[in-house]
Design a protein around this nucleic acid. Structure first.
Lengths: 392, 392
DNA sequence: TCCCTTCTTCCAGGTCGTGAACTAAGACCC
DNA sequence: GGGTCTTAGTTCACGACCTGGAAGAAGGGA
C-alpha cells in the first residue's frame, strides 16, 4: 500500500543500480553491451560507469577481441572493492566466513557452542568477525557488512522466534551492533540458503522459484518475481507444516499429518523403525544406511517418502506455479541423488498438468554449507540496490 | 531479472501514479494530505494535481472544515472522467456491466449461452458491450477499457486453458479487439473476484492476502505485496488441487486426496450421499438443505468439511503467511455464515502458532456477482499505474 | 594508410522536484 | 469590523538529470 515518490536523485541511484546489477549478475560486460541491455544512452552509460570506476566499485578487466574496430573494454565489480562477512548460527556451531565481492571465501572461523544463548551467539559471531578480518588481512573499514543467518523467524533484523534455539524476541542486530561498527543484517537461515542458490547456484536466472529444504526438519524459501517472498510478517515458506495426510502422524509442531512428519529425516526414520527397520548411529548415518539398504521395508519406506515428498512438491506447483523447484537440505540431497527421476514422475501424479509441465525440479548445487554465503550476500544485495552507494 | 533504466519522464509518470493511486484508493484527499502521504513537496503536489485536474482525471470535491486556517480542498478521481466495462463469461451466461470510475453500475446486460464456443462468447460480449454503452448513454470514446473474466488460465490476454468451457489456446483479447476499438483485458475469473474484494470488499487495505473461493470447485486468488501473484505462467492459486489427504478421495483432476474433493460443494454432497444423506434438487438447494439439516450424518459431514477446509486454510497460513484470508464462493459463503468461528478455531489446530496469530479470516463482502466488477477494475488499475495517461 | 567500432567529451535542449517566498482563505480576538 | 494568526496552496528560480548529436580519440584490422 505504501506508495513512494521518485525524485531526480532516485533516478540517478536507480540507473546506477541498473548498471551495477547488470555488471554484477551478468558477468563482465562492456559499456556498449550495457547501453543495449539497459537502454540507457551511450553518454549516460559512459558517465555513470566513469563515476562507478572513480569510486572504485567497478573496474576494467581486459577487453574483448576486436570485431574490426576498437575492442570493447570489459567491466566488472571490483572484487576487492569491499569485503563481506556471512555468519551461520546453528544449534551447535557458529560459522563465520569472509568473502570478497566475487564471493570467494578468504577466511573462515568455526566455533562450537553448547548452549546457544543470545549473548553467547553474539560473542562468538563478533569473535569470528574479528578473527576472519584479522586472518585475511582486510581492514575493518573495508568490510561492507555482516550478514547473519539464524534458524528462526526474523523480522526487521530482530529474531522474533527461534524455537530450536529457544529464543524469543531477541534484538540480534542491535546486540551485534553494540560490538561492531560494521552494518549488520539478520535473516532466516532457510532464506539465506535459498538466496545463495538463487544467486550462485541452481536457482540462477529463475524469477519464480521455491528452494525446498529437507533435513531433519522441512522448510522452504519462496522467491516471487525475482525476490524473496516473506509474507506479511516474515514467516512465509513453512512448507514442512503443510497438512498432507489429514488426521495423520503427529508432528512435533503439535498438528497431525504435516509433511515434515513424513519426509523430514526424523519422520522417515521413525516410520522405518515402526516398519521394523533397524536404525543405528546418528540421524545422518542411519539415513544413509536406510537409503542404501536393499531390504523390503527400507525400499517401501523410501518409495513412500518419495510419494509424500512428491505430494508436497505438487502442492507447491499447484499453488505457487514456480518455474523451478530446487531441492536441498542434507536429507533432500541424499534422496535426490538417486531418486530425482522418480520424484519428478511422482509429482506429475499429484500436480495439475499445466503447472507441472512448466516447472523444473533440480537439486541444490552449493551443498549444505552455503548458508553463510547466502547471509554474506545480504550486504552485497544492498549495495547493488543502492547503486554502489555505501551505507550511512 | 529484467532491469530497466529510469528517465526523467518515468519519474513524472511514477509520481502522477503515486498521487492518482492515493486519491483513488484512500478516498477524497486534500493536497496537503497528499504531500504527507507521498512525501512529495507541496510544490510538486500542486503542480501534478493541477495537471491531473486540467486533464479531467481528478476533480475538486468540496472542502474540509477549516482548522483555524485555509480550508483544505478535497480531491477525487472524477467519476465521469471515463467509464469501464467488465464482462463475466460463465458456463451458462455472459454478463456485461458498465461502471463509472467510482465503480457504480450504470448499465447491465445478461445473455444466456448454451454452447460457450469462443466465437459465441465473443459475439455476446461485444453485443453486451454495445448494449451497455447504448443504454447508459455513454460515448464509446468515453470507455476506458473492457475487462473480461474467464474461468480458465489466462496468459497475456489469451485464454490458454479453460477446461470447464473446453477451450484451449484461444486468443480471446485479439478476437474481441477485431470487433471494438476499446482496449481489451482478459483475465482469470477467480483472480477478478479476488481483485474486486481486494479493491472494494473484504480485502481492502491488505497487502498480503488470499481470497479463497469455494463453490462447486475450489480455487483462490493470491495477493502478494499488494498485487496479484500469478506465478511463472499465470496459473498460481490452484489451491483446490492441493493434496490434503494423501491417497484419499479421487478428485475430478485425476489426483487423489485434493482439497476440492473434500470441500468443494460437489465433494461435500458426494460424501453426504455416501454417509446415507438424502441429496435432492440442484447442487445449491441440496447444499442449503444439508447445512440446515439437524440429522446426525449431516452434522458430521459439515463438521468434517470445516475440518478439511481448516487444514486447507492452515496450509495457506503456513506457506504464504497472509495477513488476511477472505472466504468466498457460493458454498464458502454459506458455510461461513454459520460456521466461521468453528473454522477459525479449527485452523488454529493445523497452523503454526505465529502465522495463525497474524492472520484474520473473514468472509467476502461483495457477494458472488462481483466478477464483472473485478474485471472492470483492470482498465482502472492500468490507468492508475500509468498515472492517468490514456492508452495508446 | 584507411576504415571500422568503441568510447569519451561537450553542449544545447528539455524535464523534473525542491525550497523559499508568496498568495489565498478562513478563524479568532478585541 | 479590522487586524492578526494559522493553515493551504502557488509561483519561480535553481540545480540535478538524461538525451541526442556532433566531433573526436583510441585501438585494432585489412
Amino acid at each position: 500500500m505504501e506508495v513512494r515518490r521518485t525524485t531526480v536523485r532516485d533516478m540517478r541511484r536507480s540507473n546506477r543500480s541498473v548498471i551495477l546489477t547488470s555488471i554484477y549478475r551478468e558477468g563482465p560486460l562492456s559499456r556498449q553491451e550495457l547501453t543495449v541491455r539497459t537502454s540507457l544512452s551511450a553518454a549516460s552509460v559512459s558517465n555513470l560507469v566513469a563515476e562507478l570506476i572513480a569510486e572504485g566499485v567497478v573496474e576494467e578487466a581486459g577487453s574483448v577481441e576486436s570485431e574490426g574496430g576498437r575492442p570493447r573494454v570489459l567491466l566488472r565489480v571490483a572484487p576487492t572493492f569491499r569485503y563481506v562477512v556471512g555468519a551461520e548460527v546453528g544449534e551447535t556451531r557458529v560459522r563465520v566466513e569472509l568473502f570478497d565481492m566475487a564471493m570467494n571465501v578468504l577466511a573462515r572461523a568455526d566455533h562450537p557452542i553448547s548452549t546457544p544463548t543470545p549473548a553467547e551467539v553474539v560473542k562468538h559471531v563478533l569473535e569470528g568477525l574479528s578473527t576472519v578480518i584479522a586472518s585475511s588481512g582486510v581492514q575493518p573499514q573495508q568490510v561492507l557488512g555482516l550478514g547473519v543467518a539464524v534458524a528462526g523467524v526474523v523480522e526487521d533484523n530482530a529474531v522474533v522466534d527461534a524455537q530450536t534455539l529457544g529464543w524469543e524476541a531477541v534484538p540480534l542486530a542491535e546486540m551485534l551492533a553494540e560490538g561492531t561498527d560494521i552494518p549488520v543484517h539478520v535473516d532466516n537461515g532457510a532464506n539465506m540458503l535459498g538466496q545463495a542458490e538463487m544467486y550462485f547456484g541452481a536457482g540462477r536466472g529463475a524469477t519464480d522459484a521455491v528452494v525446498a529444504l529437507v533435513g531433519s526438519g522441512v522448510g522452504s524459501a519462496l522467491v516471487a518475481g525475482g525476490s524473496s517472498y516473506r509474507g506479511t510478517r516474515s514467516s512465509a515458506g513453512e512448507w514442512g507444516h503443510m497438512t498432507i495426510v489429514y488426521g495423520g502422524r503427529q508432528c512435533r509442531c503439535g498438528a497431525l499429518g504435516c509433511l515434515e512428519a513424513y519426509v523430514g529425516a526424523e519422520g522417515i526414520l521413525d516410520r522405518y523403525r515402526e516398519a521394523g527397520g533397524l536404525v543405528e548411529g546418528d540421524e545422518e548415518t542411519a539415513f544413509v544406511e536406510l537409503l542404501s539398504s536393499t531390504s523390503e521395508p527400507a525400499a517401501t519406506i523410501v518409495a513412500d517418502t518419495i510419494g509424500y515428498l512428491a505430494a508436497g512438491f505438487a502442492n507447491l506447483v499447484n499453488l505457487v506455479n514456480p518455474e523451478r523447484i530446487v531441492l536441498g537440505g542434507w536429507a533432500g540431497l541424499l534422496l535426490g541423488e538417486n531418486h530425482l527421476d522418480e520424484l519428478r514422475a511422482e509429482v506429475g501424479k499429484h500436480a495439475l498438468r499445466r503447472p507441472y509441465a512448466q516447472v523444473s525440479i533440480v537439486l541444490c548445487e552449493l551443498g549444505r554449507d552455503a548458508v553463510a554465503l547466502g547471509a554474506a550476500t545480504l550486504p552485497v544485495v544492498r549495495l547493488l540496490r543502492d547503486g554502489g552507494a555505501l551505507p550511512r
